[in-house]
Design a protein around this nucleic acid. Structure first.
Lengths: 150, 150
DNA sequence: AACTAAAAGTTAGCATGCCAAATGTTTGCC
DNA sequence: GGCAAACATTTGGCATGCTAACTTTTAGTT
């Protein structure tokens, strides 16, 4: 009994977390979402990454990244630049405004990260993370029983 | 270091799980998604629930449920029925086809649930669930720093 | 009874996400 | 050099999810 609840638990917990986090960002007058902030962090770390690099690093489909970068570009936080070495690729450049906004977001995100941990000893958080990490092996794109019956 | 990764981990793990699960459902010719299946389960358990009841039970906003029920209704798995006692309310009725599809979905979902647990002792899974459950207190709609600076 | 507040649903607008298909470019092979 | 395969990105279609605004109905107050 109640075994079906595991997936439900994960879904619902993530929903709560996402809503809470994005509301906290809005309340702090941060103009990017959590996912957008992740892109800004990566670009601050190393500017001029390609779309493909970014989508792999944040773990979303290429097509999802297109929309994310569209929105960041529209508000002037990043810019697409043609790659000089590969005409298929675009190099995404973060702007100073983008970096500043990312820094603002980071403060909120750090705080929420701490909130998640409060009340649990480090060993338990390690177990929590370990189980989450196992999802990457168990549920990677090529495992599942995808279209094996035509 | 690496502290920002907790939220990222949760987001990405949930993305993997969701994609894997919905692909598995498609591969098994199940015509509902995981979330839709949740509605069918609840209605099988107790038919004729209201929209508000359902949205609270699956933990989504009322407006999200509207779309979910729209899609289930379009394929004939549920039907909206006027409430005899409250003209604001709708009673959602699951059809025999809806129940059958929910049962098909349940098999797949159960399997994926088991996959999540494989490799971890029950004590660790309990910790995992405990931490996820803490999100409901920590990140409930009315906590957060939502619009406190208007 | 009249007014107000609260509740049930829906709609519109936005942001993720995925997949499949399309376009353009590069690479590998002969 | 030419052709097929692979790669990078975008587009379109669909499904969640939320907030805010709106309609209708009910409940609570005076």
């Amino acid at each position: 009994m109640k075994d079906d609840r595991l997936i439900f638990l994960i879904f619902t917990a993530q929903n709560r977390l996402r809503t809470y986090l994005n509301n906290a960002l809005v309340a702090a007058n941060v103009r990017v979402t959590f996912v957008q902030a992740g892109i800004l962090f990566l670009l601050k770390q190393s500017n001029g990454r390609t779309m493909s690099d970014l989508s792999q690093l944040i773990g979303v489909d290429n097509s999802t990244l297109t929309g994310l970068v569209d929105r960041l570009e529209k508000v002037g936080f990043v810019a697409r630049q043609a790659s000089p070495t590969d005409r298929r690729s675009l190099l995404i450049q973060v702007t100073p405004e983008g970096i500043a906004e990312g820094d603002k977001a980071k403060m909120i995100i750090k705080k929420v990260n701490e909130e998640i941990k409060t009340g649990f000893p480090p060993e338990e958080m390690e177990i929590f993370k370990k189980i989450l990490r196992s999802f990457f092996d168990k549920f990677n794109k090529n495992s599942g029983s995808r279209s094996e019956d035509g």
